[in-house]
Amino acid sequence: MDVQRISDELEINALLNTYARAVDTKDWALYRSVFTDDAHIDYSSAGAMAGSRDEVAELLSRSFAAIPMTMHYITNIECEIDGDHAHVRAMFYNPMHLPGMSELSYCGGYYHHDLLRTPHGWRSRNLREENVWFINSPKAKASEGKTAP
């Protein structure tokens, strides 16, 4: 492994850490800085939104205002780097306290980032979340309270 590859992987790891900190601290300017101006972000596998960086950041800022706590852990980062482009697959684990829930909820899965090296460092041009599992989902709790007709 050469020095450039090591440097790229360290920078990409730092970018994913910044992403997690931005979401968990609800710092939407920092969140935007992780992405290119024309980025597309897709959280639809979790039943959430997909759209441009600014559309998603605005929706997150409104919806996360009601969420008291999230804590993203991003691990097992795999990078396929080709010059100034990279594809990254990373696992996530996210405990969170959702509104109206007495206990913590948890979800996990994969982040798939297409990255571009910019004059400001690596930035995500496309993020697709692949939500694999969810424990203590508000949707599951809501359906528990319903009775059959």
Rank of each mutant, 00 (worst) to 15 (best):
A20D: 12
D37Q: 10
S33K: 01
M49F: 12
F64S: 10
V88W: 08
D82Y: 00
L30R: 04
M69G: 03
H40N: 06
R32W: 01
A86I: 00
Y73W: 13
V88H: 04
P68D: 11
A48F: 10
M49G: 12
D54M: 05
Y73F: 15
A50K: 11
D54N: 15
A22Y: 03
A66P: 07
E55L: 08
A86W: 00
R32D: 10
F35A: 01
V56M: 15
S45L: 10
V23G: 09
I77A: 00
R62F: 14
A65W: 10
K26M: 05
H87T: 03
M49R: 12
L60W: 14
A29Y: 03
F64H: 14
G47P: 07
C79V: 07
L30T: 04
A86H: 00
S44Q: 11
S33N: 06
E80Y: 01
A22S: 08
D24N: 09
A65V: 08
D24T: 05
I74V: 15
L60M: 14
V23F: 14
V34I: 09
L59R: 12
D84E: 09
D37H: 08
D37R: 09
F64V: 06
C79F: 01
L59M: 11
D37S: 11
G51T: 02
V56D: 13
H72A: 13
D38F: 07
S61G: 13
R62H: 13
R53N: 09
D37E: 13
T25Q: 13
I77K: 00
N76I: 04
V23C: 14
S33V: 01
L59A: 15
E55M: 09
D84N: 13
G51W: 07
S45W: 08
E80L: 02
H72K: 09
V23P: 09
V88S: 02
E78R: 08
F35M: 02
I81Q: 00
H40K: 06
E80A: 04
I41G: 03
